[in-house]
């Protein structure tokens, strides 16, 4: 006695859609310049709704070499208790790649050159916006290093990433 041997396509379609969604999200994360950062909170922050397409993103994140645990950084119930002051743990990352300060300077000069006029031999300030997305517990030193590099590259449109706390 043979009963329903018809091919049920539903599970296969489910899996195919799961794969499509996974790949779409994964591809998005690979291309997007953002890293997982606990941004500082600021209620005067303006919504980042229509960012300039040419904007260049610099992330400052906490990354311990060898994925070991940081001896300094401590959170209790999601609240920062002790910041990390180890210089090597705060890295500057652009599109997933860690850059040193000289590399960052070179990169900003190259990126700045894509949107600036040259008057004779001298360069004019670049209109390329740069967003610094720094962790709220990162030392300010890292931001000054990025600002210095931006100053050297004559990049002046600086935006500092911040999280707007939800309104009560």
């Amino acid at each position: 006695m043979v009963e329903n041997v018809g091919f049920n396509m539903t599970p296969m379609i489910d899996i195919v859609f799961q794969l499509i969604v996974f790949l779409m999200l994964a591809t998005d994360f690979a291309n997007v310049e953002i890293e997982r950062v606990y941004l500082p909170k600021a209620d005067a922050a303006v919504a980042d709704d229509h960012p300039d397409e040419k904007r260049f993103m610099v992330n400052i994140i906490h990354e311990v070499p060898g994925e070991a645990e940081c001896p300094q950084l401590k959170y209790t119930n999601g609240v920062l208790v002790q910041p990390c002051q180890i210089d090597e743990h705060w890295v500057i990352k652009i599109r997933g790649k860690v850059l040193t300060i000289p590399e960052l300077e070179q990169r900003l000069i190259v990126e700045g050159d894509t949107d600036r006029e040259t008057k004779g031999n001298s360069k004019t300030p670049s209109n390329r916006p740069v967003m610094i997305r720094a962790d709220g517990s990162a030392p300010f030193k890292r931001i000054t290093q990025v600002l210095e590099a931006a100053g050297k590259a004559l990049v002046w449109k600086i935006e500092i990433g911040a999280e707007k706390p939800p309104e009560d």
């Binding site: 999200l25 922050a45 303006v46 600086i158 935006e159």
Partner: peptide, 26 residues
């Protein structure tokens, strides 16, 4: 998919902090 993507977009804001255009670090 849309819930995920909308959630990511609405998270962040920014503070403008333009450097002086006419007097750079150099």
């Amino acid at each position: 998919f849309f819930m995920c993507s909308i959630h990511f977009k609405s998270l962040e804001g920014k503070l403008y902090s333009y450097l002086p255009r006419d007097k750079g670090m150099l």
